[in-house]
């Protein structure tokens, strides 16, 4: 069996922001993405989870080429993203954003919104019209919607429009940044089913960013857990959910509330400390909240440990190869 090709190769990507703390107070540095490496296999769905402020949306924008890297490299389909021109990039990789109310320009018609990537490639006239109509039909929208404005559509319909726009150039990679977080649960299910159908039909590679672990578990093949700008654990979905090794992953999984009555509310045990990307703790960056923390965690920075297709960055966790054979 040949190894599947690598669609996205992120190599030690960093993105810092300087934030002004007031005109004369100087600046502070926010380390939004602080040395992330990951590989997304062609045709897979790669999930990135974490709390707000962990850098997952910044990472998404780096992968889409919407933000330049501070250091490191991102290769998409073997080419450096930074060296690609914007039209070539658009044909390869497209976004779907969280809020379909702010991701569609309220001044444009649906046809113009979905047709924009085509226009940018110089495709106009009848061909543009046919391809827009085809794509609208494919995402389950009536053709008559083409002349409407976004304000006339429901949230679910808008997200379908955003998906149609992302797919109209037939890209190979779609970066979904919280694609269902702003939607009602019944609509969320429609959109997740649609994304799954489209992946099968077009052979898409997804990068799927979400704070909802149940959704990530349902749609992703691999999951990376981000904390304060770094990936602290990364594994195939089933293994991550069965045998989480990083204390943060365990806390995240424990806090998922499934609709199963009688289980009560879990005790997550993370305390009230709040992660601040402008003020990253020494040693292990998770130590102020870690329920299992030991003295070395305060001073010693953990290095990533690899094994059995998994990665974990924790001083206390056993090496991944043993973790995967001893289920908790």
């Amino acid at each position: 069996m040949t190894k599947p090709a690598i669609a996205i190769d992120v190599q030690d990507a960093k993105r810092l922001f300087t934030q002004s703390a007031g005109a004369f107070a100087g600046t502070r540095v926010v380390r939004a993405v602080d040395g992330v490496s990951l590989q997304v296999r062609e045709g897979s769905c790669f999930g990135i989870v974490g709390e707000s402020g962990c850098g997952k949306s910044t990472l998404a924008r780096l992968i889409m080429g919407l933000l330049p890297l501070s250091s490191g490299d991102i290769l998409v389909d073997g080419q450096r993203l930074s060296a690609m021109d914007r039209k070539a990039r658009a044909r390869l990789i497209q976004p779907v954003f969280q809020d379909p109310f702010s991701s569609l320009n309220p001044r444009h018609s649906i046809a113009d919104l979905v047709g924009l990537p085509l226009t940018a490639q110089g495709i106009a006239g009848r061909e543009r019209g046919t391809r827009v109509a085809e794509m609208l039909e494919r995402v389950g929208l009536p053709g008559a919607i083409a002349n409407r404005q976004p304000a006339q559509l429901s949230g679910g319909q808008r997200q379908r429009v955003a998906i149609a726009r992302a797919l109209v150039l037939r890209p190979r990679i779609v970066v979904c940044d919280e694609p269902t977080s702003a939607l009602d649960v019944s609509v969320q299910a429609q959109i997740l089913n649609l994304l799954a159908d489209l992946q099968a039909e077009f052979g898409l590679t997804y990068v799927f960013i979400s704070h909802n672990l149940a959704v990530v578990e349902h749609v992703c093949d691999e999951v990376a857990v981000m904390y304060l700008g770094r990936i602290v654990e990364h594994a195939p979905t089933a293994e991550l959910f069965e045998t989480p090794t990083h204390p943060y992953t365990k806390a995240l999984l424990a806090s998922v509330l499934t609709p199963e009555p009688g289980l009560g509310i879990p005790d997550v045990g993370l305390g009230d400390a709040y992660p601040d990307p402008a003020n990253i703790p020494t040693g292990c960056r998770f130590h102020p909240r870690c329920p299992a923390g030991q003295p070395p965690c305060i001073t010693e920075t953990p290095a990533p440990r690899f094994g059995a297709g998994r990665m974990v960055e924790c001083l206390l966790a056993p090496p991944p190869s043993t973790a995967s054979v001893s289920p908790v």
Binding site: S186, A189, A214, P259
Partner: peptide, 25 residues
């Protein structure tokens, strides 16, 4: 029933299976 069927539950609903959904708005 439609609402309950549309929520993915890790360990209960098979990964990648189709979720129940309610058409329309």
């Amino acid at each position: 029933r439609g609402l309950l069927a549309s929520v993915p539950v890790p360990g209960k609903i098979a990964r990648g299976s189709r979720l129940g959904s309610i058409p329309g708005t």
